[in-house]
Design a protein around this nucleic acid. Sequence first.
DNA 1: GTCTATACGAGGATAGAC
DNA 2: GTCTATCCTCGTATAGAC
Lengths: 185, 185
Amino acid sequence: MVTDSRTRLVEAAQQLFAQQGVSATSPRDVLAASGVGQGSLYHHFPTKHDLALAAVAATAAETLEAARGRLQGDAAPLDRVVAYLERPRDALGGCRVGRLTADQAVVDDDGLRAEVAGYFTGLIDEVAAVLRETGLDADAALDRARACVAIIQGGYVLARATQDPELLRSAVRGFVALLTGPATA
Amino acid sequence: MVTDSRTRLVEAAQQLFAQQGVSATSPRDVLAASGVGQGSLYHHFPTKHDLALAAVAATAAETLEAARGRLQGDAAPLDRVVAYLERPRDALGGCRVGRLTADQAVVDDDGLRAEVAGYFTGLIDEVAAVLRETGLDADAALDRARACVAIIQGGYVLARATQDPELLRSAVRGFVALLTGPATA
DNA sequence: GTCTATACGAGGATAGAC
DNA sequence: GTCTATCCTCGTATAGAC
């Protein structure tokens, strides 16, 4: 079955948003990338905002699902968190969701921001739940889970700023050393 | 002495870049904010790029200087790092320098990116130097310094995504607890 | 549902007078 | 050095036929 126009539009938008952000991506860009015609776009999505919402929601959902898969497994809780932190990432590309927070138009839009916020709170909750399995109390687990998620987002920033993927890995290494304690240092 | 046009243009650009990013700020925005006329802008800065370079360089230099001030003091090394991490920040506004890394136009421009990269490498070096004072070896200090800088950048991302400054503070708290060890936990 | 054609303001810059 | 006027392209749609 040939993918329908609507799906092609959303997938093209997701890709372009990941590369250039939402504001920097024009409906014309999406048309060109998807190979769909002008009329189709505005038939399925009356405004750019409608398309953006569909694309951002899809990306947030996919990304959160992938993370959940990694965090739920048979390994020891702390090992799962470390595996999540150390997983290979497209450091120079940045986080497909996190990067959107620098786009003021996204943050100012309640619908778009809700998708981004949902991704992060979902991810933090998941990490916090795993950390509680290690015996950490709820408050400490929440702070630590937020630190885990933040270290990845910050690592992306450093890697992009310097155009060097090593800075993400190095920041994670520094964090993991603290997280796993002197035993592993 | 009345501030001259050139200075007013750069300062207006710095402010607008901090609020909206570089790509999202038009020369017209800068004109309106500075109160300077069209001709003056293009007299001092032949292109938007020239203005952007001046403004980003100024912001990076100011921000790095401020951080250096905090990290060099009489307190114990680790206390200075913790004080740097816990300093009050405009969490919802984001880092004036770090946010620029999500702007593809900035990352793709060698001149602009060099300013941003210089800020981060300078900051990391500074933090790493302080950490070495604690007796940490050079490699571990570098990883840990990068983690310190990343946690702040990531905290900004979480705070902006959720529109809740507490997420930056919470991530820092989680990280500082690890950094200062079980003694303080 | 999809296409082509058209509209209109904003972004980025140039021209030329003062 | 600064001002006003003008230019051209792109972003974001709308109109109306097929």
